[in-house]
Amino acid sequence: MKYSAAIVCLFTILMWGCESTQNEPGLDLTTVQDSTNIAYTITDLEGPEAVRYDPDQKAYFISNFTGGGNTQDSTGFITKTDAEGNIEELEFMTGTKQVPLHAPRGMFIVDETLWAADVLGVHGFNKNTGEQTYFVDFSEFEIGFLNDISADENGALYVTDTGTSTVFKVENGDVSVLLEDLPNAPNGITLNPNTGNFLLAPWGGDQTFYEFNSSGEVTEYATLEGGNFDGIEFIENVLFSASQQDSSIRIYHSNLQNILIKTTGRPADIGVNTHLNHIAVPYIALNKVEIWDISK
């Protein structure tokens, strides 16, 4: 029996969306992943909060929360592993004696610098050597909980403060408040390739995602299922969000959404290797990172 393209598309929309598998041919977006899809597991960490992948070195960077919270205990560090999760150096980045890492969180790479949000500001490290090259002090502002970080094409940094519902902007080393009194507390931040704006993941009970441009104009993006969202990342046009409310990695695409991964704990700030379609999921409480293979 032959069916018209329109009818086939209608049935496909009911399941997922007519264009999804055409736009993302390398991703398995329809199968709920189980533990057999865990390619690698990284253990012996100390409260891993965030992961960032560097395609140049084929390496993962993992921020270790250690004591956690906003404690200034100088115990934080960033681990470097290879693409298969083998630890190359556990304490690859630690800061300096004057400005050490305390409880590093979200990270972002701009050229040769890996930027990491921490208790008192943002640290910059040479991604190849691990040497701290910059520190941007936020102490002149009311700091709640500096959490995640992203950057625009000009290298300006955008840092979420979950504790004060604020987004800071760092440009040429100068800090300013770009957004304040947001309708919900922002946690994760990432660039939306579909709009060119920055997307914010809401922490707490709110499920509405907002996005903003570099001028600070805020618009509503979507209301998504899940809750207590942490890290968010795009692969192609698919949004991946870490939902701590139900221990899952959820996807949003073409106005449709579902759970892709049922994680083994509460996921924090995820990282993506877009070359292999791998998602690295850190678990603060479990002291481990799992690298999930979502390729077909």
Rank of each mutant, 00 (worst) to 15 (best):
D161E: 04
K2W: 15
E220G: 01
K296A: 14
F168A: 07
N86V: 06
T75E: 12
T274S: 15
A285R: 10
E140F: 07
N255V: 13
W16P: 13
D118Q: 04
K296R: 09
I279V: 05
K262Y: 14
G76R: 04
N154T: 15
N70F: 11
L90R: 06
N213P: 12
S4H: 11
K296M: 05
P48T: 06
A151M: 03
I38Y: 04
H123P: 08
Y40L: 04
V51C: 09
T190W: 00
S254I: 09
V272F: 03
E236V: 08
V136N: 09
T81V: 01
T160F: 07
G231K: 08
H102R: 04
H123I: 05
L114Y: 03
L239T: 06
G26F: 13
A268Y: 12
I232F: 10
T219A: 08
E225K: 06
S63R: 03
G130I: 01
V99Q: 08
E171G: 11
F11E: 09
V136M: 09
N192M: 10
V170C: 01
G173E: 02
I13H: 15
H123V: 13
V32H: 02
I235V: 13
E225H: 07
Q132M: 03
F145H: 12
Y283M: 05
E220W: 10
G227Y: 10
T219W: 07
N187P: 06
I87Y: 08
I87F: 06
L45H: 01
S63G: 09
G265W: 00
D269K: 04
F141H: 00
C9Q: 11
E88M: 12
S254E: 15
E19N: 13
D246K: 12
L199Y: 00
T71C: 09
Q244L: 14
E180V: 10
I284Y: 05
L178M: 04
T71E: 12
D56E: 14
I291R: 03
K288G: 01
V177H: 00
A185P: 08
N37K: 08
F198H: 00
L157D: 00
V110N: 09
L286T: 06
F11K: 10
A50S: 11
T36H: 14
T264P: 02
F108C: 10
F108A: 12
N194E: 14
S248A: 15
P100S: 11
V8F: 14
K58G: 07
I62T: 01
W292P: 04
E84R: 03
L146Q: 02
S4T: 15
P100Y: 07
T164E: 12
N287Y: 01
P193N: 11
N228P: 10
S4R: 12
C9I: 14
P267H: 04
N126V: 11
F141G: 02
E24V: 05
N277G: 05
